[in-house]
Amino acid sequence: MWDVIGLWIGWLLMLMIYSYPLYKENPAFRTAEHMFIGVTLAISIITNFSNVMRMCVTPLMQGNILMIVPLVLGLMIFSMLIPEYQWVSRYPIGLLVGTGFGLGIRGTIKPNLQDAIIDTITAPTSGGAMAWFNFLYVAVGLICSIMYFMLTFEHKGPLQGPTRIGRLFIMVGLGGYFGNTVLFRFTMLTGRAQFFLQVLKLIPM
C-alpha cells in the first residue's frame, strides 16, 4: 500500500520538476526543488555523522586517544562562521590541502605523464599504414595541442603554426567529448521516460 503511494508520489514529483523545462518556473517546481534540498541536507548530515562516529568517535571511546586530534581539527573548521576567528579554520584546511597536494603530485606523475607519453610515442608493431597514420596523428596532435597551452610565450613566429594546428586537434577532442556528453544526458532522461511509463503500467516495471 505505502509502496504504491510512494511510487505515485515519485511520479508526481517527477512531473513537478519537469514542469520547469516543459512549461515554465512555477510553484510546483519550486516546491519539489525545496523538498529535494531539505531531504538531501538531512541525509548528508546523518550519513556523514554516522561515518564520523564509525571512523573517529567509536575508536576514541575505545581508547584511541589520538582520534581527538581530527575531531578537534574538524570542529575548528566551523570557526569559519565567526569572522573574528576565521583564521582558526585554516589549520584543518592546511591539513586537507597538504594531503591533497602530496597525494595529487605523487599520484599524477605515472598515469597522466609517464604512461600517457609512453603510449603516445610507442610505434605500432602491426596494423599497416592506418596504424602508422593514427600513431602520427596522435603524436603530432599531442605535441601541437600541448604547445597551444604554452601561455608564457606569445603564439607568434615559429609557434604560430603548431599552436593553430593544436587548437584544431583540441576542437576535435571537444567534439568527441560533446558527442559522449549527449549520450550521458539522454540516457539519464531515458531512465525518467521509462519510469514515467512504468508507473502508468504501460510497460513492465
Binding site: P111, I118, D119, N180, F184, R185
Partner: peptide, 15 residues
C-alpha cells in the same frame, strides 16, 4: 559516457 573521452586514453595507455 561523458567521462568516456577522458577515460579512453587511459585505457589505451594501460591504466
Amino acid at each position: 559516457a561523458m567521462n568516456g573521452s577522458t577515460d579512453l586514453p587511459r585505457w589505451q595507455a594501460g591504466n
